[in-house]
Design a protein around this nucleic acid. Structure first.
Length: 648
DNA sequence: ATAGGGTTAG
């Protein structure tokens, strides 16, 4: 009993063993790693090495390299690498593979390259191709440890040769080799062969099943889920944590968030404990969940299960909070993160940009650079879109010019589009148009779309026509472009031309996506469409909105009839401004405040201008904060003002 | 050489 407690909690396990030799030391390191306790494995390695003056052999180094790989511990990884060189294992193929894998998992690709170079892995692979391998005949261990290198490098030909060599040399039924082959064929996009190898295995084990399911996820999700069901009813194999993670991350990557959450519940019911990878995958899935309760539940789970130290989990949480409207929580979480990589910084910059905090996005960018983390292409998209949403034209221009000059990041079409948006929203329409024409690549729909949007805000009919006509060519099926031009022409009172735009849209058979908003009250999500009367409180909702409209008129705010046009859609002619889905959802949220000081509403399309005015008024009149997420960004309404500065 | 090595999830 005492011994057991020590094994779990005591860092110096070696005290329990009278004379630890290299073998038992290695065994313990592996045991810790297999149980997900990488920190302890690494500590054990370091402490025993230093205090007992034991020289690690290649197996000990291999074991600790795996611990570093699993935990992404780059600091110790470098130490392990230098040990490998110090003890003269620099050209060991097995260890070399493990070190490359370790650096890869720590995202330190320069290190991986260096090991690769030292090892002359390419030469090793070539030597293997000639089946010489320095005169030593490869055994099963060699084959199964070299196959992952083929997977990584997508060397299908060599993989095939290894496959043939294995069969010729009586290793055709080796489960390690076969699983590695399934993975190799799958990585080389040769699913048919992966399938063949798997189906010819006499006794596939958990790993074989995991690998084939993962292979199916890369081509057809239905087939993968089907195979997973087969695995579950198969008596011969027992699901392990990797099985669950494979299928959960497969769902997450394919936008199946609900399924991922359901699988998380399933695995827990069956007594399988989620690990960091599970949590990260589920969090990634939740990031794309349309309706989320502010991330609080999964956050609580992460805290309860001590995954808070995990970089990827934290980054996902930062994004979840931002996307669910809670920017404060997002910022707070980020500031508490002990370690921040490029992705983490990008996330918090984008979060602030989405919420219209351009200044904060810019200052975060400067902090990022100051702390020595290298910005990449995504970073600049984030900062520039922050500048555009906050009318920071000069700042945007200066960032754009510093991209190549100071950061060696080549602007791509997306950055150019951001700059069109920066100039356009800043009211510098001619410059925006010139900018498009000077783009070194073909201007994308995003670039013309940014210009068209700016033309709507600044009521520029001439440029609006040009941008819209380009968009009608590039993306003829996007209803938003027709509606925007229609609104531009309508507000210029060019009725005839406006209705011919409408006709063009109708003739092409393009329909507007129906507007839909939702709000979270208590434990339920309530959905509203235009003119919705299906809610229990519909009468109260409309009464409330009537009252607001009266109050607005008394205050001299008249409905902006320009936006009546926005929803004019044939059969929806009777739609007036008072029944847009976002107004209904806001009204319902206000009527169910229950002591809260803020509500959050989500809409699938851009918010309408009249709704924007009305919600500003409601926020002031009721004295609450109203946060609305539309398809592009967030609006924070407080005391009669919106964070977007009316440049929605 | 009868303690350790090889395949899978992000």
């Amino acid at each position: 009993m005492t011994k057991m407690r020590c094994f779990q909690g005591c860092p110096l396990i070696s005290h329990l063993i009278s004379d630890p030799d290299v073998q038992s030391w290695t065994l313990l390191i592996s045991a810790y790693t297999k149980n997900g306790r990488c920190k302890e494995a690494i500590k054990l390695y370091t402490e025993v090495k230093n205090s007992r003056k034991i020289a690690p052999d290649k197996f000990a180094i291999l074991a600790v390299a795996k611990a570093c790989a699993a935990s992404g511990d780059l600091v110790n990884a470098k130490e392990i690498h230098s040990d490998a060189l110090k003890y003269r294992f620099g050209s060991d193929l097995l260890l070399g593979n493990a070190l490359i894998d370790m650096y890869g998992k720590c995202k330190y690709f320069e290190g991986a390259e260096r090991v690769f170079g030292d090892l002359r892995m390419k030469d090793a692979l070539l030597a293997f191709r000639e089946m010489g391998l320095s005169g030593i005949k490869p055994n099963a261990m060699t084959l199964s440890s070299i196959l992952p290198a083929c997977s990584d490098l997508k060397c299908l030909n060599l993989g095939r040769e290894i496959h043939g060599f294995g069969i010729k040399n009586g290793m055709g039924e080796n489960v390690f080799i076969n699983s590695a082959l399934v993975d190799m064929y799958s990585s080389c996009s040769s699913i048919k062969h992966a399938e063949m190898v798997f189906h010819n295995m006499p006794r596939p084990d958990v790993v074989s099943w995991n690998v084939i399911i993962s292979a199916y996820f890369s081509m057809a999700i239905a087939k993968a889920l089907n195979k997973f069901q087969q695995m579950r009813i198969n008596q011969g194999v027992k699901l392990d944590i990797i099985s669950w993670n494979t299928v959960i991350s497969g769902c997450a990557d394919n936008g199946k968030a609900q399924e991922a959450l359901e699988l998380l519940r399933n695995m827990q019911q069956l007594g399988c404990k989620p690990n960091q990878i599970t949590i990260t995958s589920v969090l990634t899935a939740c990031t794309n969940l349309e309706v989320w309760r502010g991330g609080k539940e999964i956050h609580a789970y992460v805290v309860r299960h001590c995954f808070m130290g995990d970089l990827a989990a934290n980054t996902a949480l930062v994004l979840i909070y931002a996307k669910s409207g809670d920017l404060e929580m997002s910022n707070r979480l980020f500031s508490m993160m002990p370690l921040k990589d490029t992705v983490a910084w990008n996330t918090i910059i984008i979060a602030n940009s989405m919420h219209g905090r351009g200044e904060k996005a810019l200052s975060l960018f400067n902090q990022m650079v100051g702390s020595g983390v290298k910005p990449n292409s995504v970073t600049f998209t984030g900062v520039l879109s922050g500048c555009s949403h906050s009318q920071m034209v000069d700042e945007g221009l200066s960032i754009f010019h510093s991209m190549i000059k100071d950061h060696k990041v080549e602007p791509d079409a997306e950055h150019y589009s951001c700059m069109v948006d920066v100039l356009g929203r800043g009211g510098r329409l001619t410059e925006a148009y010139n900018f498009i024409q000077q783009m070194p690549m073909e201007p994308s729909a995003a670039a013309w779309g940014a210009l068209l949007g700016a033309c709507r805000v600044y009521k520029n009919t001439d440029l609006g026509r040009i941008a819209a006509n380009r968009l009608f060519e590039i993306e003829p099926d996007n209803p938003g472009n027709y509606v925007l031009l229609f609104n531009i022409l309508g507000s210029a009172k060019l009725w005839e031309e406006a209705s011919s735009t409408r006709k063009l849209m109708r003739d092409r058979g393009i329909r507007k996506v129906p507007g839909c908003s939702w709000v979270h009250v208590g434990n339920r999500v309530y959905t509203f469409v235009v003119g919705d009367k299906n809610n229990n409180m519909s009468n109260d909702i409309y009464k409330f909105l009537d009252e607001i409209r009266m109050k607005m008129k008394l205050a001299g705010c008249y409905p902006d009839t320009e936006f009546v046009l926005q929803d004019l859609d044939g059969e929806e002619q009777e739609d007036s401004l008072c029944n847009h889905s976002e107004k209904l959802a806001v009204a319902f949220g206000i009527l169910n405040l229950r002591g809260e000081s803020s509500i959050r509403v989500f809409k699938n399309l851009r918010i309408c201008g009249d709704c924007h005015n009305t919600i500003k008024f409601i926020a002031k009149f009721v004295g609450v904060q109203i946060i609305v997420r539309d398809s592009l960004r967030f609006h924070h309404f407080t005391n009669g003002l919106c964070s977007c500065g009316d440049f929605w």
